[in-house]
Computed example of a mutant assay.
Amino acid sequence: MDKENQIVSQAGSFSGLTPECVLDAVEYCGFRCDGRLLALNSYENRVYQIALEEGAPLIAKFYRPQRWTDQAILEEHQFVQELVAQEIPVVPAIRDRHGQGLHHYQHYRFSLFARQSGRAPETGDAATLSWIGRLIGRIHACGATHSYVHRPSIDPHHFGVMPRTWLLQHDFIPADLQEAYRSVSQQALDGVVRCYERAGDVPLLRLHGDCHLGNILWVSDGEQAGPHFVDFDDSRMGPGIQDLWMLLSGSRAEMQAQLTDILTGYEDFYEFDSRQLYLIEALRTLRLLHYSAWLAQRWNDPAFPVAFPWFNTQHYWQDRILELREQIALMDEAPLWPV
């Protein structure tokens, strides 16, 4: 079992990360803070907006201990720098005079970023979806040129087998629901395998990895107008459809129309293999399995019970069992259009 899926006691992971420590870490990198600090909405890491004595505020991301190795973080930074070189609107880590974007202060690792403003995109607009599709196509064209070495892939093993195994080995699922969860989660994984078999040998490439609308900021006017992609922290190797399916919502007909608009732009820069359509519901199923384990593995972090009070209740696990049953049926349906 890799480091990402090991249970670690998170209770003290960020316990020493006081406002004073955050500001001292930023000043250690040569920036003069004016003392104002705003905690931003992030649970995997700790992220803050830092006001400076001169210039625009910075964003400081303190990485969760024991999640990524230094090499894995630097791989992500390198990928984003490659995207910057292609003039793709992303937000790279700020590098110091030595060319370093990953910093160490006390026992914390952190990076600094420019603050990117923007709002959520209007996904009901075909032109907006096509624009987003063009940029994702460019990201994937760059992502396909090299492979990650230090980051696990988005695949049935890392996102399905491992989190399921972990949950069944630890005391989270209520005893009277364990057998039902064991059975339905195995049926779900069997369905995932069938989807992958139908898709065949789909190439893997470097992805954003968590490309939902919250990680796309839309700037309305000025030289930076359009979508900007932020937070590549979950970047991994995976099939290209991973960065597309989370942008789809609504009825089957609505998702078909949305994907058509996205691919209109996407295929200007990168070819879309339609066999990946078999993977949409499989990847959704894997995300559901992974998410439950992600919450459980971090439950000792004091921020998690406060932010997710509904987790680990009887009702929560009953809903997950029902959700997986629905996914089993969806994975056996025909793809959004003929392959």
Rank of each mutant, 00 (worst) to 15 (best):
residue 224 Q to H: 13
residue 300 N to H: 13
residue 75 E to Q: 04
residue 110 F to N: 02
residue 27 E to Q: 13
residue 313 T to L: 04
residue 119 R to E: 07
residue 270 Y to D: 05
residue 298 R to E: 04
residue 191 G to H: 08
residue 329 A to C: 11
residue 120 A to G: 10
residue 132 I to W: 07
residue 82 E to L: 03
residue 213 L to S: 10
residue 303 A to F: 08
residue 87 E to N: 14
residue 46 R to D: 04
residue 244 L to Y: 01
residue 138 R to H: 04
residue 226 G to K: 14
residue 100 Q to A: 12
residue 112 L to M: 04
residue 88 I to F: 14
residue 62 F to P: 00
residue 155 D to E: 12
residue 206 R to G: 00
residue 146 H to D: 03
residue 325 R to D: 11
residue 190 D to E: 15
residue 32 R to L: 11
residue 103 H to M: 10
residue 87 E to K: 15
residue 213 L to H: 14
residue 180 A to C: 09
residue 7 I to E: 04
residue 311 F to K: 01
residue 185 S to F: 09
residue 122 E to I: 08
residue 85 A to H: 13
residue 266 Y to D: 06
residue 225 A to R: 15
residue 310 W to G: 09
residue 338 P to Y: 11
residue 236 R to K: 10
residue 241 I to C: 02
residue 293 A to K: 00
residue 193 V to L: 14
residue 271 E to P: 01
residue 192 V to D: 07
residue 116 Q to L: 08
residue 189 L to N: 02
residue 187 Q to D: 14
residue 31 F to N: 11
residue 149 V to P: 09
residue 262 I to H: 01
residue 14 F to Y: 12
residue 127 A to M: 07
residue 265 G to E: 03
residue 129 L to P: 01
residue 190 D to M: 12
residue 87 E to F: 06
residue 266 Y to E: 08
residue 107 H to T: 01
residue 298 R to I: 02
residue 235 S to Y: 07
residue 47 V to T: 15
residue 298 R to V: 02
residue 107 H to K: 11
residue 128 T to V: 15
residue 32 R to Y: 08
residue 121 P to S: 11
residue 230 V to L: 06
residue 166 W to S: 06
residue 328 I to S: 08
residue 74 L to W: 01
residue 1 M to F: 15
residue 172 F to M: 07
residue 154 I to T: 06
residue 114 A to S: 09
residue 304 F to R: 12
residue 288 L to H: 13
residue 118 G to K: 08
residue 100 Q to L: 14
residue 337 W to Q: 05
residue 113 F to N: 00
residue 125 D to K: 02
residue 95 R to A: 11
residue 122 E to P: 03
residue 252 R to A: 07
residue 20 E to N: 08
residue 254 E to S: 13
residue 333 E to W: 00
residue 284 R to W: 00
residue 6 Q to V: 03
residue 226 G to L: 09
residue 258 Q to Y: 07
residue 3 K to N: 13
residue 232 F to Q: 00
residue 75 E to S: 00
residue 316 Y to I: 01
